[in-house]
Simulated scan of single mutants.
Amino acid sequence: MFCPIRRKSKALGVAAALAVTALTAVACGGGSGSGSGSGAEQTELRYQGSVGQVTPAELAADLGYLGPITLKWIGNTISGPQDIQATTTGDTDFGGAFNGAIIKLIAAGAPIKSVISYYGVDKDSYIGYFVPEKSPISSARDLIGKKIGVNTLGAHLEAVLDAYLKKQGLSTEEIKQVVPTVVPPVNTEQTLRAGQIDVAALGGILRDKALERGGLRQLFSDYELFGTFSAGSIVLRNDFIKKNPKTTRQFVDGVAKAIEWSKTQPRDVVVARFEQIIEKRGRNEDKTAIKFWKSYGIAGQGGRIQDQEFTRWIDFLRDRGELKKNVALTDLYTNEFNPFRAATGS
């Protein structure tokens, strides 16, 4: 639900290599399928989904908001960085990730741009960082040398963890001693209770069920740190936008309207629609988790992107010494295609 942000890693080098690969693919005409030379715009968009979940784009398609655009599912992903890498290399036509991952990939030369927010944090949709009720851990300083279970390195969960540690006064060297540890989300609670990690980052149904079972205590959450905010965006390649301006506008318009539909309908109506979508697409998925859906957590009207949703992570990456190149907000995102852009004059 951020190319990865890794402690003392070669993530930026990987991002740069990916960017070069993508640029080569585009230059050689490979991957995207977005231009046939006939002048006709592409209307079938390839994407990756998530097991047992309905993305805003999938909701938009089901509601009929995408017009002539059809979505072609090519598989599932559990990682935002992997999802936007697939878009960068032309394996998909759109993908989504934490804004921090998008910043790093674009800074490394990836020819992509954010066009609409697709997930965020609010009072109902948030990630809590939990310890066993009897754990001696009660502060940020207690996390030095401890293992924190996250779904992937360098994404939303690690960035929020670092933001919490920094806000609580830990030095850069002390923060490096806190150990984010990759654990599959469905196993995170069990891994915590078994003592294999010291802190578990949990959200959604996994958080709710863990709390229902009891014996856990929340140390902090991303909502407590930042309040309501959009955390991740959908990206398109720059060449796709240039070759397919009408498709781009229709796609963003439809997703924006679907986001607003999800905000204005009663929760049980939205959940029922999600269940129907999951049933119709026939991917042999368990629908149990979707019953616990509460919101996408998106702050801006219709997924409209706001400056601070990128500047916060630019500052974060720069402070860590992981952003060597200056990036302009205009290189990172645009609200040009969002029907709700007039609300900010973007």
Results as ranks from 00 to 15, higher is better:
Asn151Phe: 13
Asn151Ser: 14
Gly154Asp: 05
Ala155His: 10
His156Ser: 12
Glu158Gly: 04
Glu158Pro: 05
Ala159Lys: 03
Val160Met: 10
Val160Trp: 02
Ala163Met: 12
Tyr164Val: 00
Lys166His: 12
Lys167Leu: 11
Gln168His: 13
Gly169His: 12
Leu170His: 09
Thr172Lys: 13
Thr172Pro: 00
Thr172Ser: 13
Glu173Thr: 13
Glu173Trp: 09
Glu173His: 07
Glu174Ala: 11
Glu174Tyr: 08
Lys176Val: 01
Gln177Gly: 05
Pro180Asn: 10
Thr181Pro: 01
Val182Arg: 12
Val182Lys: 09
Val183Lys: 12
Val183Cys: 09
Pro184Ile: 14
Pro184Cys: 14
Pro185Glu: 14
Asn187Gly: 00
Asn187Tyr: 12
Asn187Lys: 15
Glu189Met: 04
Glu189Ala: 15
Gln190Cys: 00
Gln190Glu: 13
Leu192Glu: 03
Ile197Leu: 02
Asp198His: 13
Val199Pro: 06
Val199Cys: 09
Val199Ala: 09
Ala200Ile: 08
Ala200Ser: 09
Ala200Leu: 04
Gly204Glu: 06
Ile205Trp: 12
Arg207Lys: 14
Arg207Tyr: 02
Asp208Lys: 15
Lys209Asn: 10
Lys209His: 03
Leu211Met: 12
Glu212Cys: 01
Glu212His: 06
Arg213Lys: 14
Gly215Arg: 08
Leu216Gly: 01
Leu225Cys: 03
Phe226Ser: 05
Phe226Val: 00
Gly227Met: 04
Gly227Arg: 08
Thr228Asp: 10
Thr228Val: 08
Thr228His: 14
Thr228Gln: 13
Phe229Gly: 00
Ser230Lys: 05
Ser230Gln: 06
Ser230Arg: 04
Ser230Met: 04
Ala231Lys: 08
Ala231Leu: 12
Gly232Pro: 07
Gly232Glu: 12
Gly232Leu: 06
Ser233Thr: 09
Val235Glu: 02
Leu236Met: 11
Leu236Val: 00
Arg237Asp: 01
Phe240Ile: 10
Lys242Asp: 12
Lys243Thr: 14
Lys243Cys: 01
Lys243Tyr: 11
Lys243Val: 11
Lys243Asp: 11
Asn244Trp: 11
Thr247Asp: 04
Thr247Cys: 03
Thr248Gln: 01
Gln250Phe: 07
Phe251Tyr: 11
Val252Met: 07
Asp253Ala: 11
Gly254Pro: 09
Gly254His: 05
Ala256Asn: 04
Ala256Ser: 14
Ala256Met: 03
Ala256Trp: 06
Ala256Leu: 03
Ala258Cys: 01
Lys263Val: 13
Thr264Ile: 08
Gln265Met: 15
Gln265Asp: 00
Arg267Asn: 10
Asp268Lys: 10
Val270Asn: 07
Val270Glu: 09
Ala272Thr: 07
Ala272Tyr: 02
Ala272Val: 03
Arg273Ala: 08
Glu279Lys: 15
Glu279Val: 08
Lys280Arg: 15
Arg281His: 10
Gly282Lys: 15
Arg283Phe: 09
Arg283Pro: 00
Asn284Gly: 12
Glu285Tyr: 03
Asp286His: 04
Lys287Phe: 03
Ala289His: 07
Ala289Pro: 11
Lys291Gly: 13
Phe292Gln: 06
Trp293His: 13
Lys294Gly: 01
Tyr296His: 09
Gly297Lys: 03
